Amino acid sequence: MHTNQFEFEPIKKDSLVVELTKRLLDYIFSGSIQPGEKLPTERQLQDALNVGRSSIREAIKVLNVLGIIEVRQGDGTYLKKLDSGFLLESIEWGLLLGERNLIDIIEARKVIEVSIVKLAAERGTEEEIKELWTILESLKESSTEEFVEIDVAFHLKLAEMARNTVFRSIFLSIQSLLRTWIKLVMKDVTDTNFSYTDHLNIYLAVSKKDPEGAMAAMEAHMDDASRRLMEVMNEKERGK
């Protein structure tokens, strides 16, 4: 890779590691480097970004932990082959990449889930509706620890009922995001009834084959889940 293939503007913010990580991600996603290719050296990044070597190493460490790059001792740092879902493996990236990134993720999930539930209400069979009810009942009786997987199973069943391979594939790719999202929201919760009620309203609309009602119920659920997630994230940020 030639050194003249990348350019950066100097960083002036105090939070160097966060800003460096964001800048490196922007560089990666710009298409300037392809999976399997070598990233600029620490010295090249240091000169281009006008920051210390230790800050560069910390940012590289973050990307390595997140599974985006591979550090080969004595050889250099390489961009890993990335699948469509890797960016969403941890909702905690919202803290790392900033509030705008978190809001984008929330908006995207809402659009996906509302579209899925509309098709599920239109296309779901009676047998599938019974299966959805079974999952819902398990949700009601679950512990907080069990809640996460059952919650994800409920949304996955809706994706299957939608009978759209693209939506199902998208949903499968964001399972990690859902798990982390739900874990964060439910971490300190002792009563899960509020979430059960949201899922019950979704089920009732789907069971009546009411697409509009299902979409409204899902929107309400997404709005509530998003609000709770933002509250958790804001608390985390204040606690730093």
Rank of each mutant, 00 (worst) to 15 (best):
L158R: 04
G52A: 11
I28C: 01
M186F: 03
R168M: 11
F86I: 11
L24N: 04
F6A: 07
D47Y: 11
V232Q: 13
G31Y: 06
S90R: 13
E42D: 10
E141S: 15
T180E: 11
D210S: 01
K22Q: 13
Q73W: 07
L102D: 00
T3Q: 14
G94H: 06
D210E: 01
I69Q: 04
A48P: 03
Q34T: 03
G36E: 03
G31I: 03
A121I: 00
F194D: 10
I129T: 13
V111C: 07
M161S: 00
K61F: 09
M222D: 01
L49K: 14
G52H: 10
A225I: 04
N4I: 07
I68E: 03
A205D: 00
E92Q: 09
I91N: 07
L156A: 12
K183M: 14
T197H: 15
Q5S: 15
G239V: 10
E146V: 01
L156S: 10
L82I: 14
I150G: 00
V117M: 00
Q175W: 04
F154C: 05
D224M: 05
D198L: 08
T190G: 15
T21H: 06
E235S: 14
S169N: 11
L82E: 07
H2M: 10
I170N: 03
L136P: 02
I116G: 09
Y203K: 02
L156T: 11
E113I: 11
A59Y: 00
H221E: 08
Y78L: 02
A216Y: 13
L20A: 04
S115N: 12
K187S: 13
E145P: 07
K209T: 10
Q46F: 02
L172T: 09
V166R: 13
L156H: 11
E160K: 06
V71H: 14
E9T: 13
S226Q: 09
S195Q: 14
L45R: 02
E127L: 06
D26M: 11
W93Y: 10
F86N: 08
L229F: 02
I129K: 13
E131S: 14
A162R: 02
K209F: 08
A217Q: 07
D47I: 15
I116W: 08
R53N: 07
S84R: 14
N101S: 13
A220R: 15
F6E: 09
M186Y: 04
G67W: 10
H2C: 08
Y78W: 00
V189P: 05
I182K: 06
E126S: 12
I106K: 06
D188Y: 15
V65R: 11
I28D: 05
D104W: 14
T192D: 06
E92F: 12
R43C: 14
V232C: 15
E122H: 06
D14H: 09
A48T: 07
E126M: 08
Q46R: 15
K240N: 12
E149A: 08
A159H: 00
L39A: 10
S195R: 11
T21D: 06
L45Y: 00
I112V: 14
R227S: 15
E231D: 15
K12F: 07
D188W: 09
D188L: 12
K157Y: 04
K130H: 10
